[in-house]
């Protein structure tokens, strides 16, 4: 599978895109917009994660959707259209059922966007973005990301070493295992602390703490980023205007009321679809370009 093209854009574009989609996903309740968001998130997650995403969506997202949709009407009894009464005497209303479906849709959409976010916004992009605003903390993040795999490897080695003197964490009762696990953690802690002092030396030795530290990154904001950034801003602006002018409004309680569909709302819907599909569109365009280049040679 071809590498996702959207991931190769500047981190600020990646981050801005996901921030916008998550915010819109949380705020917009108009059913058309919700369906668009769900569709876009679903498509992109499959594009990014392939078969794994399909499996994940069917196995976890679908049941989650159902559970959430059912959970709401059990606890929420607002709404005027009463369908029937539950055993405990509480009414089941159409509004709360639809509201449950809508909420479930939103939640699944958010989770899907996060799964895309996790694939695109790798740690180094995040660290780069926050490196300028919070240099010390982003350095801590980077250090923790360096230490964790190292510590896990140490834990593995220590547990082997412990096993080879007969202290096995995979055998014995719970208490024995937990105790041996603690011994491993304790050895690891001493090791980590003692070795970290040398790491601090290495930082100081390379001038950490001198005033005027800069933050370097491999990312460059090029014309491609400007183009997509501009498109992103324009589409977001349309969405905001739509929200302010009430085109996206949706009310569930006490009775369902949706904003009327006008030509402008069609524009807003189209803008949202375009926005949601932006990474997919970019991916397809790049793939086509590549095809035409490779067919020429």
């Amino acid at each position: 599978m071809m590498k996702d093209s959207f991931s190769s854009f500047h981190p600020i574009i990646n981050f801005g895109y996901f921030a916008a989609m998550l915010l819109f996903g949380m705020f917009l309740m108009h059913p058309v917009l919700q369906v668009i968001a769900l569709l876009c998130a679903l498509t992109y997650s499959i594009l990014l994660n392939g078969r794994k995403a399909v499996k994940f969506n069917l196995l976890y997202m679908l049941p989650l959707f159902v559970v959430m949709a059912v959970m709401n009407p059990v606890f929420n009894h607002a709404g005027v259209t009463i369908l029937f009464y539950l055993k405990n005497g509480n009414p089941m209303t159409l509004e709360s059922i639809l509201y449950g479906v809508s909420a479930a849709c939103m939640f699944v959409t958010i989770l899907l966007w996060f799964s895309c976010y996790n694939a695109v916004m790798t740690s180094d992009k995040f660290i780069y973005l926050f490196g300028k605003i919070m240099p010390a903390l982003s350095l801590i993040f980077s250090m923790v990301l360096r230490f964790v795999p190292r510590y896990k490897e140490q834990i593995r080695r220590i547990s082997l070493a412990q096993r080879s003197i007969g202290r096995d964490i995979t055998q014995g009762n719970m208490l024995v295992r937990a105790r041996n696990g603690l011994t491993i953690l304790s050895i690891m802690t001493t090791w980590a602390l003692e070795n970290a002092i040398e790491t601090a030396d290495s930082m100081k030795s390379r001038g950490y703490g001198l005033p005027g530290r800069t933050s370097f990154s491999l990312y460059r904001f090029d014309s491609r980023d400007r183009l997509v950034g501009g498109a992103l801003l324009a589409l977001i602006a349309i969405m905001v205007i739509g929200e302010v002018s009430g085109r996206n409004a949706m009310r569930f309680f006490p009775s369902i009321k949706m904003a009327m569909t006008t030509p402008f709302s069609i524009i807003v819907f189209a803008a949202y679809l375009l926005l949601g599909m932006l990474p997919v569109i970019i991916h397809v365009v790049e793939a086509l370009k590549w095809k035409s280049i490779s067919s020429k040679t």
Binding site: D124, L139, S142, M143, L145, R146, E198, T199, S202
Partner: peptide, 8 residues
Amino acid sequence: DNGIVTDK
């Protein structure tokens, strides 16, 4: 291992 500070 101790000399290296960052993850990349």
